[in-house]
Design a protein around this nucleic acid. Structure first.
Lengths: 193, 193
DNA sequence: GACTATAGGATACGATCGTTTCCTATAGTC
DNA sequence: GACTATAGGAAACGATCGTATCCTATAGTC
């Protein structure tokens, strides 16, 4: 056997470099060559791990969803709904990167059924775990039992996603962001209370 | 004077062709040549009206916001908040096109201050007119007077935008869309009290 | 130590990109 | 009718794209 490397680790590193680059300079700046440079490899080396550019993008999409899920899993078990929603907002550089990417991917996915299916599955997962959280709150008596957990979850997630779009248009530390976050709190309370 | 054409009309037609193309095949499919073909001109002719590709995109952005505003203005004066929000959802091909474009533009604008400023102004306009609508409802006694119209407007718009992202991932006539629309109604009612 | 399969890099190919330059046709002025 | 400014198109430029091909270096097997 010849020289051996951890192929899966390499693939992840390349996809991660793509995400870093795309978040910093936009998805249109992504090419085999620029991704290779971002990961300090030659373009030829990248091609040993991904046959096409499209394959790298799909792996990067996967990686983004993995990160979303791991952040979700890292929340303390007794965190409230508000804290869960806040996890998805672009309030620091890392989450801002992810939000940019998911937004760009979503726009492209609208015309590509395979990408859309992929993203939709991620949405469904978030939706289901949010709905489960709400049902738990109902069992604990923290939320009126006559609410439809699914409808409520859809509303809360939409609220968070819509706010994310607004926040992306503001400079990272803009003062208007506080107003928007307060509006989110108000709306969440109105929906839950 | 030589041959005379309506330059503004030509510019609008070119920008409109860009929007049509970008909505159908994605923003990455947009080039001087493809836009020219979409509008049945030669690439050289396009360059007589826009010096750079970037200029066309900016005009297209302007055009999209003009369309949003004109649709908003076309609503019957006694329409409710729910109908206003529904205007922005991608429920037919035309609005789906616009939503795809605005989403793609927003993702790119996150890294480009000039685009972001442009989009943010559009958001502010929608926000202000929505808040005004809410204050009118308060004066009419249709909405409790103790609500903050600005926070409420921000929440309602975020709700609509977030739902738009979800709808973009579903095929145009998907049955899940109905569930989401019902969730929107539920949430709007909860927010308005 | 010879052999070999893979890592990694260099290079080439055809296509397309944004943009510039040059040419022709035409509608209006004098 | 000569003149001219503009519309519109054709072609070319250098750069970059995705991808394919070829070459070398190296880590493991026998």
């Amino acid at each position: 056997m010849p020289k051996v490397v951890d192929r899966e680790e390499r693939r992840r590193a390349i996809a991660s470099a793509l995400l870093r680059l795309a978040a910093r300079e936009g998805l249109e700046a992504v090419s085999i060559r620029t991704v290779a440079a971002e990961n300090d490899m030659s373009p030829g080396a990248v091609q040993k791990y991904f046959a096409t550019k499209e394959d790298i993008i799909l792996r990067a999409l996967e990686l983004t969803e993995e990160r979303l899920e791991s952040r979700y899993a890292a929340l303390p078990p007794n965190a409230g709904i508000g804290e869960h929603l806040r996890q998805y907002l672009p309030l620091d550089d890392k989450r801002r990167e992810e939000a940019i990417l998911l937004t760009a991917f979503t726009a492209r996915a609208a015309n590509r059924a395979d990408w859309a299916k992929f993203l939709e599955e991620g949405y469904t997962a978030i939706h289901d775990s949010t709905a489960e959280l709400l049902r738990q709150a109902q069992r604990d008596g923290l939320l009126p039992a006559d609410r439809d957990a699914h409808d409520l979850a859809a509303g809360l997630i939409a609220l968070s996603d819509g706010l994310t779009l607004r926040l992306l248009l503001l400079p990272p530390g803009a003062p208007e962001a506080d107003r928007l976050l307060r509006a989110l709190d108000t709306s969440v309370r109105a929906l839950l209370g």
